[in-house]
Design a protein around this nucleic acid. Sequence first.
RNA 1: GCGCCCUUCGUCUAUCGGUUAGGACGGCAGCCUUUCACGUUGCAAAGACGGGUUCGAUUCCCGUAGGGCGCGCCA
Length: 472
Amino acid sequence: MSVVTRFAPSPTGFLHIGGARTALFNWLYARHTGGKMLLRIEDTDRERSTDAAVAAILDGLTWLGLTWEGEPVHQFARAARHREVAEELVARGKAYRAYETADELNDMRAKARAEGRFARYEGTWRDRDPSEAPPGVAPTIRIKSPLSGETVIDDRVQGRVAFPNKDLDDFVILRSDGTPTYMLAVVVDDHDMGVTHVIRGDDHLTNGGRQKILYEAMGWEVPVMAHVPLIHGPDGAKLSKRHGAMGVDAYRAMGYLPEALRNYLARLSWSHGDAEIMSTEEMVEWFDIDGIGRSAARFDFQKLESLNGHYIKAMPDERLLETLTAALPHLPGGNEFLARLTPEKRGRLRLALPGLKDRARTLNDLFARADFIVADRPLALDAAASALLDPAARSLLAGLVPVFQAVEDWQAPAIEAAVKAFTGERAVKLGQIAQPLRAALTGHATSPGIFEVLAALGREESLARIADQAAS
RNA sequence: GCGCCCUUCGUCUAUCGGUUAGGACGGCAGCCUUUCACGUUGCAAAGACGGGUUCGAUUCCCGUAGGGCGCGCCA
């Protein structure tokens, strides 16, 4: 039987990092086994679900390169089917109508909590005759959970997990307005969609027990379950906005590459020996549920950055240039940079890229360091650059002009040879000329190798920038 | 409060009873060097605690502590 996994986000916000990892695992497992991953939008909460969130989630998945099979299933559209199953359960005596109002239930819960008791539905209407139903109350449908014994799920990650049935109450499966609850909808949809493997966050572990009760009530086969540990923030607490619970679009805006994020996320609670840097093909080949660990992982931005730097360096220049220009609109300040990137400057950027990418860990970092490429003359100098351009330095720069005019092949090696000959003549150290040159050409005290900068800028622009700063 | 889960360097992890407990990120130091990086070499850094089981426990069991998740007509 072919593997069918699914990713089932609720569209109440962006695709957060934990969801992205869950989607990644489902995707990897489906690819690894030659199966498929389905996408289901869990929008039964009509109050909180929004179209914008659906769009954000699809966008996030697409950016991450996680593809799904077929059209996304919208859970709410299947409400009639869910109702049908709920009614069938009532007809079979596996579920019953309960006539408490939501307010009454809330009061009962509040009271139980205040008294330090577990707020559990006591099954008041479980065996009561429906003829006793109070008039004017629309009932919910509740499942009859077993009263004794235990419900066991054999989880592929967590192992055998047993829940005492006395703690599992008769949860609502159909609301009084006739719409299904999550618990019902998930089970019916997973069954109807032919899902064979449910891979999700372990915050759903106890739900797994409840869902098993539903599967058994319907006489359906329970899918393989794999509850993956959650991702925590750097301080070990639940991931919140404070650390990393932003949407994946926020990671894109921070200049991370999807392949870097994929690689990083894959290594959270999953490993394959000592493998750290993995191509997507390798991840697909190596991924297995057996490799998933059982403890929660903390999100570590430094490691993500390190990986991201690796992928930036590894990317061929032409592709990196395309990737950067495509990403720019999503990066803070990116549009301004893009607006100034004339075709001529784009050519210079392309030439400077090898030196630039070694120094960058994010795309933001990359284009920030490339500001000298798009800058217009006369360059604004930062404090460190100004300090380098003392009178002696300015006079040395003036001496360089004829040297540069005489360079025949305006490439880094020839330029370097010419400059070294010049430093020999003047008996100065390379640093004494390289630093003022850097300041004049880039406006900063740091930059890629100075000869690469000269080559990238071109002779004309380089000489003009030098003239702006040289002693006349 | 009740239930369930987790616990190896600061972080992510390897180890599937016998290892000098390995790798990666980060840190520190050296090298490279025109700056900053990159690269490279080396160093420091871990089995929460207490009991068992065993010839031998990081590994198996129990307890304690700490952390997490769940306990909605949310998903």
